[in-house]
Design a protein around this nucleic acid. Structure first.
Length: 274
DNA sequence: CGGCCCCTGACG
DNA sequence: CGTCAGGGGCCG
């Protein structure tokens, strides 16, 4: 489920807990979630390493070692990363456990098992995770109306599909694409090549503004994050269209509509969004 | 592009 | 029982 705001939230919650800790051992009850290298090498390479910090790129999380070796993690739909005291009960679908030197465990769990982990050695090119293929971050300087128009503006794909294309912009998923398009007053099924300059300008403004708004609304303490098992998406009450099909548009009162666009359900206001 | 695949669980 | 889920890869 996590999109950029949730992944950023996880990074902000966990990084202070992980930074400076040493990984004593790694256990992998579900080796298939380790996509690179194989699970035995993954565990062996990380044992004894000290954690320098965490980072996020699009929807990817990274746990960076002092050596420069980096664990890359993608949560996909139901992946979850929790830091818990080692005697705290583990989630049902726990597939990877990093045992730290302070009796804390960092646990990756994932009901649907779509999530993946990779280990990138220091100096090694990441040709395996797909992270190198990502487009710019929504908060990059270069995320301008000019960039969006040049990167997307020739396409006959829907603007919704373009916003979901991680090669064009990193981190936007199905919920926030709907929220961004509502804020920008653009219908999700518009062909990208039909957008006008003013609309690219509105998108350039609403993409970072909307995502940072929802990151702020997600703020949570480490204790509450652990207690809710990472599932307390406290920005949900602030979603204006996603999950609100049939309800009145918060701006004009027209019932919000839900269409399938590019295989993903999309909610929008048929009056406000042109 | 659409369609199917990877999986489990919640809901109607 | 079928459908859907805030992701993404692959295939024709």
């Amino acid at each position: 489920m996590p999109e950029l705001p949730e992944v950023e939230t996880i990074k902000r919650v966990l990084e202070p807990q992980l930074r400076g800790c040493m990984i004593q051992s790694v256990k992998v009850p579900r080796p298939e979630v380790i996509a690179h290298p194989d699970a035995a090498d993954f565990c062996a390479a990380l044992a004894g390493q000290k954690i320098r910090g965490m980072d996020r790129r699009g929807k990817f999380l990274q746990i960076i070692m002092e050596s420069g070796d980096t664990v890359i993690l993608h949560l996909r739909m139901t992946g979850c990363l929790l830091a818990a005291p080692k005697d705290h009960p583990a989630e049902k679908h726990t597939h990877v456990v990093f045992c730290l030197d302070n009796d804390v465990e960092v646990r990756f769990s994932d009901t649907r098992r779509f999530g993946r982990l990779w280990l990138q050695h220091a100096g090694e090119a990441d040709t395996f995770s797909g992270r190198e293929l990502l487009g710019p971050e929504p908060f990059d300087e270069g995320m301008t109306a000019e960039y969006l128009q040049s990167a997307l503006g020739k396409s006959r794909r829907t603007i919704k599909a373009c916003l979901l294309d991680q090669k064009k912009i990193a981190g936007i998923g199905n919920i926030y694409s709907d929220e961004i398009l509502f804020s920008a007053k653009i219908r999700p099924d518009r062909e990208a090549c039909s957008l006008k300059k003013k609309e690219w300008e509105r998108l350039a403004e609403t993409i970072p503004a909307s995502l940072s708004f929802f990151i702020e609304k997600n703020r949570i303490t480490p204790a509450a994050y652990l207690k809710s098992k990472g599932q307390d998406y406290r920005n949900t009450p602030f979603l204006k269209v996603y999950g609100h099909e049939g309800e009145p548009c918060p701006t004009c009162g027209t019932p919000l509509r839900k269409n399938v666009i590019g295989g993903r359900s999309s909610v929008f206001c048929p009056k406000c969004q042109k």
